[in-house]
């Protein structure tokens, strides 16, 4: 995601010209902070738009006026919106997301564990998919327009069309049920050994890898191709450099930025992908927690999960932008 924006509160012109790199990075940081704030407003306001009153929905048939009033004051719904927003945001910044309406437990405690589980899953999916995607992308470029490239293209086209749950259940059917070499559901619990944990997440990780791999590989291929078709690659060849040396010395420094960008974008995608995969594998992560909360309209949990997912997504996108800025020699070495 390329966020282009006019700088707000721009530092003096001369300073920006002397350190364009720093200026741009600061601008991106500021922009992301602004974006996060706006997103928090959006998520909070969403709940305010709740048609009818939560208390009424919550109590269902037994909603006497007195009971509704009690619930409202108990949940703090009787105070002005702005007060509640700033209170919510202030607490959220300190890691306190309030109390779940459904279970009356602390949301933060629940999320603490589950966020760790989700990140654990996403981390291993990234660990496998990133190198694999880059390798396949390089292969596709190397065999450009020849058979291996075409095969990779067709398969990846099919792969981006597959819904996560389809891949998930397919893997479960074959590897957990028919062959019995993997475990389902992917239960993890506290005090579980590291190896046990890895075994438990084998299938969800595989699903995530398959989901994200095709996207990442196709984008990597495009990024490398655009670098390989540059005039300076021809210069390198006409200098008598071998293909390998030309790639290492001339293509790589220019391809790293777009590839890193692709990776960061897909990591953001991965974080969202965990939602469905967790539901499929009954994995105790953030995604499942959020989906459950949405079904019972447990708003504090929905808000908290929404904010955290959005924050991770925004931060990864910001990282992609900043890496692209840092890798640009024009900005690193101003005139």
């Amino acid at each position: 995601m390329a966020i282009t924006s006019e700088p707000s509160g721009a530092p003096p012109r001369r300073w920006r010209e002397r350190f364009p790199l720093l200026a741009l990075i600061l601008q991106r940081l500021g922009l992301s902070a602004l974006l996060l704030l706006a997103v928090s407003v959006l998520i909070f306001a969403g709940v305010e738009a709740l048609p009818g009153d939560f208390a009424t929905t919550y109590l269902g048939q037994s909603a006497t006026p007195q009971a509704v009033a009690n619930i409202r004051s108990e949940l703090g719904l009787d105070r002005p919106v702005t007060t509640r927003y700033f209170e919510w945001l202030g607490n959220a910044l300190q890691g306190d997301f309030g109390t779940s309406w459904a279970s009356r437990n602390s949301v933060s405690e629940q999320i603490g564990n589950r966020l760790g589980n989700s990140l654990f899953l996403a981390f291993f999916a990234a660990l496998i998919s990133v190198p694999l995607a880059i390798l396949l992308g390089l292969l596709a470029v190397h065999y450009r327009n020849r058979l291996p490239d075409k095969i990779i293209n067709v398969i990846s086209l099919a792969a981006i069309s597959l819904p996560e749950f389809f891949i998930g259940y397919l893997l479960i059917l074959y590897f957990a049920v028919n062959f019995g070499i993997a475990t389902f559901p992917a239960t993890v619990f506290e005090g579980m050994g590291f190896v046990e944990r890895l075994k438990a997440i084998a299938l969800p990780t595989a699903t995530l890898v398959l989901v994200v791999l095709a996207h990442m590989m196709r984008m990597t291929r495009a990024a490398i191709l655009s670098v390989m078709s540059s005039a300076y690659m021809e210069t390198a060849e006409l200098k008598g450099l071998g293909a390998f040396r030309a790639i290492v010395k001339h293509a790589a420094p220019n391809a790293i930025a777009p590839i890193v960008n692709v990776v960061a974008l897909n990591l953001a995608y991965l974080v969202v992908g965990v939602v469905v995969v967790e539901v499929v594998f009954v994995y105790p992560g953030m995604g499942q927690y959020m989906v459950d909360a949405v079904t019972v309209r447990d708003m504090p949990v929905v808000q908290a999960c929404g904010l955290i997912f959005a924050a991770i997504y925004i931060l990864l996108n910001m990282a992609a932008d900043i890496l692209a800025i840092v890798a640009n020699p024009r900005l690193r070495h101003p005139r």
Binding site: E234, A236, N254, P329
Partner: peptide
């Protein structure tokens, strides 16, 4: 080359 601007690698 005709366009030296494109023929030089911007990273070196």
């Amino acid at each position: 080359a005709q366009s030296a601007a494109a023929a030089f690698n911007p990273a070196h």
